[in-house]
């Protein structure tokens, strides 16, 4: 008895079982993510400043060539005065627009859906949420392929429209900006619904009653009371749709074709086969990463500020 107690003095310490071992427990995560993500990104940063090796890969000579190429057109021999290279800026701009409108359409459909689900009975709610989430878990590639199958010139939609004599010729839907929009919207819609749902679930509907009590019609109540209260969820949903859409690859590649190049397609092209321009690809990736990190930073700051304000 006595012996048991005296030797156990250390094991009967206060505090949780991870006390003193946190570093050890976190080491694997730190190591894996550090070595396989942080380091690679840093190396990618370095690569963006290296020279393209036309035989594939890079030559370890530092240069600003990649970024230069991105913004400026120095012509074939570099003698002419540089003019702005619009091609890549255009691609970025197009990606922004696509991502932005995907966000808007997801908002227009996602918000009413989230609101409707949140105002159903608890059992219906779980079922509806489950239904909305399942498509997300289906492989994005398969979802995009399904969409491609659906809207092709020889796809079911066109077939049915022709069969029912609505149109005579197939409607060109594939390989258009519209197709890419549709693809992005389809890919990330659940990301808009879920955070908005979470916010509305916490909303106290007595506020809507108070507004009605104070001569406010239905839609004004939505605009002036519900939406301001639910703003965090809306912002989160918008970010969760905008960011992946910006760097998307599958939708523009499978649904957009050559004329609807986006950032993702541009990057992918640099690493295909031997003729790729790795530094350029790295540079474009860096630009994309920087933009997204800035957006996330602004978002995090505004969250922190809101949290402070509420105190």
């Amino acid at each position: 008895m006595a012996g048991l107690i005296s030797t156990s003095a250390k094991t009967k310490a206060e505090g949780s079982i991870v006390e003193g071992r946190q570093a050890m427990l976190l080491f694997p995560a730190w190591a894996v993510i550090g070595v396989l993500l942080v380091v690679p990104v840093l190396i990618m940063l370095i690569y963006s400043f290296l020279t393209q090796d036309f035989r594939g890969g890079v030559i370890w000579e530092f240069t600003l060539e990649a970024y230069d190429q991105f913004f400026l057109d120095r012509g074939l021999f570099g003698d002419e005065a540089p003019s702005i290279e619009w091609t890549y800026i255009l691609i970025f701009w197009r990606s922004f627009l696509q991502a932005f409108f995907a966000m808007i359409f997801c908002l227009l459909i996602g918000f009413p859906t989230a609101y409707f689900i949140a105002t159903q009975s608890p059992r219906s709610r779980s079922m509806l949420l489950f239904l909305v989430t399942i498509p997300y878990w289906v492989n994005l590639l398969i979802r995009t392929v399904s969409m491609k199958f659906l809207i092709r010139d020889t796809g079911p939609i066109n077939e049915w429209l022709i069969a029912f004599s609505v149109i005579d010729e197939p409607v060109r839907m594939i390989n258009t900006a519209f197709a890419v929009q549709l693809g992005l919207f389809y890919s990330y819609l659940p990301f808009m619904v879920l955070p908005i749902y979470a916010s509305i679930e916490r909303y106290n509907f007595v506020l809507s009653e108070a507004a009605a009590d104070l001569y406010t019609g239905r839609w004004t109540t939505m605009l002036k009371v519900v939406i301001p209260s639910v703003k965090p969820g809306i912002v989160a949903g918008c970010i969760l749709v905008f960011i992946p859409s910006l760097g998307a690859f599958l939708a523009p590649d499978l649904l957009g074709g050559a004329k609807n190049f986006m950032i993702g397609s541009l990057v992918e092209e640099q690493f295909k086969g031997q003729a790729g321009d790795w530094p350029f690809g790295a540079a474009v990736s860096m630009v994309l990463l920087t933009i997204i990190m800035i957006i996330l930073l602004i978002y995090a700051r505004s969250q922190a500020r809101d949290a402070e304000g509420a105190r």
Partner: peptide, 19 residues
């Protein structure tokens, strides 16, 4: 850090890992 893979766009992760 744990959430970093979620925040970095997939294409960027892909490029960085390849490089």
């Amino acid at each position: 850090l744990i959430n970093l893979p979620l925040m970095v766009p997939e294409i960027v992760t892909a490029v960085a890992t390849l490089i």
